[in-house]
Amino acid sequence: MHSCHQTSLLPVQERQDYWRGVIGSTYFDLALHFTEQQRFYGQLWRWDVAPFGISFLSTSPTCYRRLKQHINRHEDHHFLITLPERHEVHFSQERRSVRCRPGGFILERSDKPYEFEYGQDNSLWVVRVPGSLLRARLRLPERYLFSEFDRSQGLGAVFFDYFRSITNQVACLDDRQAALLMRQLIELFALAVEGDPRAIASDDSGLRQVHLQRVEQYIREHIREPGLNPEQVAAACGISTRYLHKLFQGQEFSVGQWIRELRLQGAEADIRRGGSGRTLADIAYKWGFNDQAHFCRSFKTRFGITPKAARRG
């Protein structure tokens, strides 16, 4: 679905409330402060590609605050990939911050309070990604917060070029095609941030970071093997099973849960893609599920619908 919103035809006194509603429906609840209240303007183009969102907005200087009362712990939160076009933006959360200039991009998380602002008239692209989906590809997306990534060269440029090609053609694509391309975009985003040396600026020790990357790479490479389990992963990566579990301690997924999440996300993408002629049993087996009944139960628990319903989708 495509929609466009603008304030230019509204009386000045109505623009700010209107814009708050536009922002809330496009992203999530936020408190807005307008630096130049008497001359505020805003335009926003929005494409909904379930479960993703793409938007392009141009506004006068604005501060967006995500407050505690805006956050519902029982809902799947989102990450935002932000790409400023005209001027610098500033994102701060939990006493850490990052500035992003045109030519770069940053990652933001929505499940904790934050402040996002720009002090000059600005235009920016924003991609909204479900937290669970991004976490299936980047086990700890928090490692990639507060880093400015370069979109002018290397994998960052590949990611941005692919993103712009999607936005140029999204109106010509059906929902299934657009969703498939968006999943590939997230894969490119993950490759870009993982390949940027500045992304290693995390609280993890260097050795712990090396182990995590090796574990994640091994799991992705062997995710379709039915027998993949923590013991196999630990042995292949040269660490103890106990240490492997410790690496995942305090995170959203345990190692076993993350393996299951990757498999379910892969199966769900294949089912919604359609056109392959594969049966549901074939897809379940492809992604490491030996028991189709168990696969169907796990799928419905995770996505709220059965695999058959997802295929009809």
Rank of each mutant, 00 (worst) to 15 (best):
L264N: 05
F163Y: 14
T301L: 01
H5P: 04
R183L: 04
R198N: 09
W125R: 02
E142A: 11
A293G: 03
G131H: 05
E142G: 04
L212F: 15
A269C: 03
L244A: 02
K68N: 07
R311W: 15
G266F: 13
R272C: 02
S92P: 07
L212V: 15
I305D: 10
Q257W: 10
A310W: 14
G274Y: 08
R99I: 09
Q213K: 06
H245G: 00
W45M: 03
L185D: 02
S25T: 13
D282M: 00
A284F: 13
H211N: 10
S97K: 04
Q257L: 04
A31K: 15
G53R: 08
R139L: 11
S276I: 00
L145G: 13
R198M: 12
A50L: 08
I81Q: 08
Y218I: 01
L180C: 04
F28H: 06
W47K: 00
E88R: 12
L191S: 08
S55V: 07
G227Y: 09
N72M: 09
F79K: 00
R164W: 13
G104S: 11
F34N: 10
T279R: 14
L44S: 07
L173G: 01
Q184R: 14
A267Q: 09
G206E: 15
L191P: 02
V126M: 13
H77N: 00
R278E: 15
E221D: 14
E117S: 14
E187I: 10
Q257P: 07
Y144K: 00
D291I: 01
T301W: 11
G21L: 06
D121K: 03
C63N: 07
L228V: 08
R220Q: 13
Q13A: 04
K246I: 09
R96Y: 13
P141G: 06
P197H: 08
Q217I: 02
G266K: 08
D29M: 12
E252M: 06
D121G: 07
V89N: 03
V158F: 09
I166C: 07
E231S: 10
Y243P: 03
F303I: 13
G206R: 15
F248G: 00
I271E: 08
V158D: 10
L67A: 08
A269D: 08
L244Y: 05
S92Y: 10
H74M: 11
P141M: 11
S97W: 14
H294L: 14
F40S: 02
R135I: 01
W47H: 07
S60T: 15
S58K: 12
T7E: 04
Y243E: 03
D29E: 15
R137W: 09
T306L: 14
D76H: 06
L264I: 02
Q93N: 06
D291H: 10
R96T: 12
